[in-house]
Simulated scan of single mutants.
Amino acid sequence: MSKEQPEREGFWSLGHKWITAIAALITALATAGIIVGVNSGSSDKSGNALPAPTQPASQAPAAPGSTAASSAPPASSNAPADPAVYYAGPVTWGQVNLDLTPPAYSSTNDIMGSGPDLYNSGHVKIDIWADRGEPGRKDCETLALTTGGAEVDSLHAGSIVCGITEKGRPFRLNVKVASSNGIVTDAVVWNA
Score class of each variant (00 low, 15 high):
S77K: 11
M1Y: 07
W190Q: 02
N109V: 01
P135N: 11
A187Y: 01
Q95M: 03
W12N: 14
P116M: 01
D117P: 01
D110Q: 06
P6A: 09
I126R: 02
L50S: 10
S13L: 07
A57T: 13
T67A: 05
P170L: 07
Y105V: 01
E141R: 12
D139H: 11
V175T: 09
A63W: 04
P103E: 02
A157V: 07
N39A: 13
T92V: 12
V38K: 14
M1R: 09
Q59S: 12
V124L: 06
E141N: 15
I111S: 00
P6F: 07
G136L: 09
S2Q: 08
D131E: 15
V38P: 00
N174L: 09
V184R: 02
M112V: 08
E7N: 08
S180Q: 13
V175H: 02
P6R: 12
L98F: 11
A130T: 15
L98T: 00
F171S: 03
G65F: 05
H156S: 15
D110A: 09
N78M: 07
S76R: 08
T92Q: 03
E134L: 15
T54K: 12
P80V: 02
T142P: 03
R8E: 12
A187D: 02
T147Q: 15
G89W: 00
S106C: 01
K176N: 12
K125N: 06
T146R: 15
R169Q: 13
P73S: 14
A60Y: 05
D117V: 02
P135H: 10
A28R: 07
V188L: 05
H16L: 10
T142I: 11
T92H: 00
Q95Y: 01
C140Y: 06
V38T: 12
A157G: 15
N181M: 06
R132M: 09
H123P: 01
A23C: 11
R8K: 14
S42K: 12
A49E: 10
Q5Y: 08
D99S: 08
I160S: 03
P102Y: 01
H16T: 13
F11P: 07
G122D: 04
G133E: 12
P51W: 04
A60E: 13
S46P: 02
L143F: 10
S106P: 01
G10Q: 06
I183N: 02
I35N: 10
Y105F: 11
R137F: 04
G10H: 08
D117R: 04
Q55N: 13
K17N: 09
Y119H: 11
D127Y: 03
G10L: 08
P51N: 12
R169Y: 11
Q5L: 14
L25V: 13
T142G: 03
A144F: 07
A24Q: 08
W12V: 09
K17Y: 07
G47L: 06
T185N: 06
S159V: 05
L143G: 04
V96F: 01
I183K: 03
D139W: 06
A49C: 05
A84H: 04
N181G: 13
S46Y: 10
V96L: 03
A60T: 12
W18K: 11
L14N: 13
I34L: 14
A84S: 13
V152Y: 03
G168R: 10
I164A: 04
A28Y: 06
A81Q: 10
T146I: 14
I164T: 09
S58Q: 14
I111Q: 00
Y87G: 00
D153R: 15
Y86E: 02
R172M: 14
N78Y: 02
P53H: 07
V188D: 01
T165L: 07
